[in-house]
Simulated scan of single mutants.
Amino acid sequence: MNQYHFSLNISYQTFLSHYNGAASSVQVITDNGLRLQLPALRFRPFLSQLGIRGRFRLTTDQNNKFIKLETL
């Protein structure tokens, strides 16, 4: 398994435009400098009135297939 750590700070309005189809993915840069592109729908469980903010850990399998996304 691979794990990637990153911080995210997206306002509520910005995220809604992503989720509603303006863009279907969110691009993040990990602590190690890797650029990852994830479907916006993966972040929906973390959406609050403030948007999406915090530290996250993405876990993938050896083929970089999504396993889970969690807050830290």
Rank of each mutant, 00 (worst) to 15 (best):
L47R: 09
R44Q: 13
S17N: 05
P45L: 03
S25Y: 04
Q13N: 05
R42F: 13
L8R: 02
F6G: 09
V28N: 09
A40R: 01
A23L: 05
Q3M: 11
Q3C: 08
K68Q: 15
Q49G: 11
H5I: 08
P45H: 11
S11C: 03
M1W: 14
H18C: 04
E70K: 09
Q49A: 11
N63F: 11
P45E: 08
D31E: 15
K68I: 14
R55N: 13
H5V: 05
F66Q: 11
V26Q: 00
R35G: 00
N2V: 07
P39C: 00
E70C: 07
K68Y: 15
Y4D: 12
R55S: 15
L47I: 05
Y19L: 11
N63L: 14
Y4F: 15
P39F: 00
R53C: 12
P39L: 07
M1K: 13
S17K: 11
N64V: 00
F15Q: 01
L50M: 05
S25A: 07
K68A: 15
Y19D: 00
F6I: 09
E70Y: 13
S24D: 10
R35V: 03
D61L: 11
K65R: 13
P39G: 02
I67S: 13
L8H: 02
G54E: 04
N2D: 12
L58H: 08
L50I: 01
F15C: 06
T59V: 15
S11Y: 04
T59P: 10
T71A: 12
N2G: 10
L50W: 01
F66W: 14
Q3Y: 15
M1G: 15
L58A: 03
R44S: 08
L8C: 01
A23C: 02
A22Q: 00
I67Y: 13
T59H: 14
R35H: 00
N63W: 10
V28E: 11
